[in-house]
């Protein structure tokens, strides 16, 4: 097979990947342009696309007269080098290898390797980086990149947001301080307690492990206002009347309010023990409504207690 044909096969594979991973971004959760979100995909070795008269990158320049011929020994083989030490010379930062190899976390002691094409049809044989990399694990021979190009006949299993939403993700618990009470115009501290959760289920004959982690919190305070935070908030010390926190809220009226919290969970899934990859979109999970009882304060100076003067101020049951 010629190098040009390999390139075409590679490009076709990349196109197939794009087509198969339709990002079903949840409308409600909103888009995300963060580099670690679903938009971050593998970078592969491709040729320059011709735009505005741009030149194509030089290929190996060998032309095969019978492109449909069966693959035979074409003198091309592959070898690999450890990615983190390649090109580092003598000044290797000790943090470089752990950082790079952290990408290969499907098993312990994974190593990121770069693939080198060995062309023995010329003398001396040439070594050319292919621009492709893969993970190598102890006791396993890593697959050369060429097999990775020809093998993908089955569409990869993709867990969509729809599938994610079917999982019984536990809603966050709402906690307010102190108890369910708050004071008008004061900062009432409320916070969420949400947990990372893991689910294992069968999907298209594959075992899926799905991890859900809370990423944002949409608060509906029940008084017509709301907010979205990326922090769940947390408890504050003491009586906690009027302490401002990232998730506290000031009610401007007295009364009972039903606070509704929607927690958005991001999902990462692994197919048959493979590497974890993100689910496109976030699952929204609504918590049980939480009652907030908001009161006003009134101060008076008195000279008797309620036993001495049961009709005194503040001795009757409180009113709003």
């Amino acid at each position: 097979m010629s190098a040009a044909l390999k390139t075409i096969a590679l490009v076709a594979f990349l196109i197939a990947l794009v087509a198969s991973s339709t990002p079903a971004i949840d409308e409600e959760a909103g888009p995300s342009a963060g580099i670690t979100e679903s938009g971050w995909v593998n970078a592969g070795n491709t040729v320059r696309q011709a735009v505005g008269g741009g030149k194509r990158a030089p290929t190996m320049g060998r032309v095969d007269a019978q492109p449909a011929a069966l693959p035979e020994d074409d003198g091309i083989s592959y070898t690999y080098v450890r990615a983190c030490t390649a090109g580092a010379g003598s000044d290797l930062d000790p943090a470089t290898c752990p950082r790079m190899d952290a990408q290969c976390d499907a098993q312990d002691d994974g190593i990121l390797v770069n693939w080198i094409e060995l062309d023995s049809t010329v003398r001396p044989a040439t070594r050319t980086p292919t621009g492709r990399s893969s993970c190598m694990y102890p006791g396993e021979a890593p697959a050369p990149p060429i097999e990775g190009v020809e093998a993908p006949e089955e569409a990869p299993i993709v867990i969509t947001l729809e599938e994610f939403q079917k999982q019984p993700v536990l809603a966050a618990t709402i906690v307010s301080q102190p108890s369910n009470f708050g004071l008008r115009n004061a900062h009432s501290n409320v916070y969420a307690q949400a947990q990372e959760q893991e689910f294992t289920f069968e999907f298209q004959d594959a075992e899926i492990v799905l991890k859900a982690r809370p990423v944002s919190y949409q608060w509906n305070y029940g008084d017509g206002t709301g907010a979205t935070t990326t922090t769940p908030g947390g408890p504050v010390d003491g009586a906690a009347f009027d302490t401002e926190t990232p998730t506290s809220h000031q009610y401007t009226r007295t009364g009972d309010f039903q606070l509704i919290l929607t927690t958005y969970f991001a999902g990462d899934y692994s197919v048959d023990g493979g590497p974890f990859q993100p689910v496109a979109g976030e699952a929204a999970v609504v918590s049980e409504p939480h009652l907030m009882s908001i009161w006003r304060t009134e101060g008076h100076n008195v000279s008797e207690n309620c036993i001495e003067n049961p009709q005194g101020i503040g001795c009757a049951a409180p009113t709003r």
Binding site: W40, V41, N42, A43, G44, N45, T46, R48, G54, K55, A83, M100, Q103, C104, L112, R132, S133, S134, C135, P145, G148, P275
Partner: peptide, 16 residues
Amino acid sequence: EVDHWVMLDFGSPEGS
């Protein structure tokens, strides 16, 4: 490209 750089691709390493 002749006299300037062009970014072809950017993302996570393949195989990770």
